[in-house]
Amino acid sequence: MTALTKADMAERLFEELGLNKREAKELVEAFFDEIRDALSHNEQVKLSGFGNFDLRDKRERPGRNPKTGEEIPISARRVVTFRPGQKLKQKVETYAGTQPQ
């Protein structure tokens, strides 16, 4: 099964809501662009029914180059984490596929 893409999502808006193809494409772009923009300004994003995109600041920690064994510090960084909401968790819990993705 191929992955869901922005094109598929735009197609759905066209079919279900009757947005024209250009509007549908722009809306899907705007949806992800605005979420990315908020996160890029250290702003948490909460999509009720789906989940929250949270930001975490990590301190510098010691790391190692796995090839050479050389010790190099892993710099302090900010990362995005996704916490699925209750509704989404319940929806996927019962997925019966035997092949973990």
Binding site: L4, D8, M9, R12, L13, E16, L17, L27, V28, F31, L47, G49, F50, K87, L88, K91, V92, Y95
Partner: peptide
Amino acid sequence: TLIEHMSQSL
């Protein structure tokens, strides 16, 4: 609709 589509896919 987008959020439902994504949830449904997953």
